[in-house]
Computed example of a mutant assay.
Amino acid sequence: MAKKLALDELPKRLTVDGKKVEDIIMVYGFVAKGTEENNITFYLDPALKTSVVVKDEDIIHHVKVTKSHNPIGGTIIWVKNAASYLQGKTAQTQPHLQSQQNAEQFFQGDIYQQFANTVQGNTVPKPQGAHVPVCGCGKCGQ
């Protein structure tokens, strides 16, 4: 008989009344003081060039990244109302408008879309003919 697995904390944190929140994204970055008391500035890169202002109420869960996992640390946040951030509908002050547009472009890229599909359980098609097989056996596809 197989041992029963312990339940993970993440599914509990990402559900509301036992139902999965649909409009959600997971983002890695760095937390800084927000433009107002009820938000944070979330930098999407270690050079602190791209940021987005995230409302506190939209952060469902967060996890600090330990230095043993990444030497520069950081934070992973799960944000609800993702469409409002992706489409630029969040209320922000003028200086952060460019950062909002940068974040929108970041979340619309092919790499992010592949990541989002993987997280959501969708299959990501492999590129056809992009690489020549390495071993030549014809079975492994490498």
Rank of each mutant, 00 (worst) to 15 (best):
S84M: 07
L86K: 02
L86P: 01
K89W: 06
K80M: 03
L97R: 05
F107V: 09
D110P: 12
H69D: 15
T118G: 08
W78S: 04
Q105N: 10
V119R: 03
K67M: 09
I72G: 01
P71D: 01
Q114I: 12
G74M: 05
Q94L: 13
I111R: 15
V119I: 09
D58N: 14
T75R: 04
K64L: 12
T66D: 08
T90Y: 07
I59C: 08
D58G: 11
K89C: 00
I59K: 05
H96M: 12
A91S: 14
I111P: 07
Q92D: 12
V79A: 04
I111A: 15
N70W: 02
S68D: 09
A116I: 06
F107S: 04
V65R: 01
I76H: 05
K89V: 03
Y112L: 10
H61I: 09
K89P: 03
E57V: 11
A91P: 10
I59G: 01
K55F: 10
A103V: 06
Q113R: 08
V54K: 04
H69A: 14
I76F: 00
K80P: 00
N117W: 11
T93M: 13
H61R: 08
I72M: 05
V63I: 14
E57G: 08
Q108T: 13
D56F: 13
S99C: 13
F107P: 04
F115S: 00
K80D: 02
Y85A: 01
N81H: 00
Q105V: 09
F106D: 03
A83T: 07
Q100P: 01
I60C: 11
Q94C: 12
N102M: 10
T93G: 11
G88E: 02
A83F: 05
N70P: 04
F106E: 01
E104C: 06
Q114C: 12
I77E: 01
V65N: 02
V63Q: 12
K64M: 11
S68Q: 10
P71C: 05
T90S: 07
Q87E: 15
K64P: 07
V65I: 00
V54G: 05
V65P: 04
Q98I: 14
Q113D: 12
T66G: 08
V63K: 06
T93R: 13
K80I: 04
N70T: 07
A116F: 07
D58I: 09
G88F: 01
N117T: 08
I72D: 02
Q94D: 14
E57R: 15
A116H: 03
A103R: 00
Q100Y: 03
V119K: 03
A103K: 04
V79H: 01
N117C: 14
Q105D: 10
G109H: 09
I59V: 15
A103G: 09
F115C: 07
A91Q: 14
D56Q: 14
V54D: 05
I77G: 03
F107R: 02
V54W: 07
S84A: 02
A82I: 00
T75A: 06
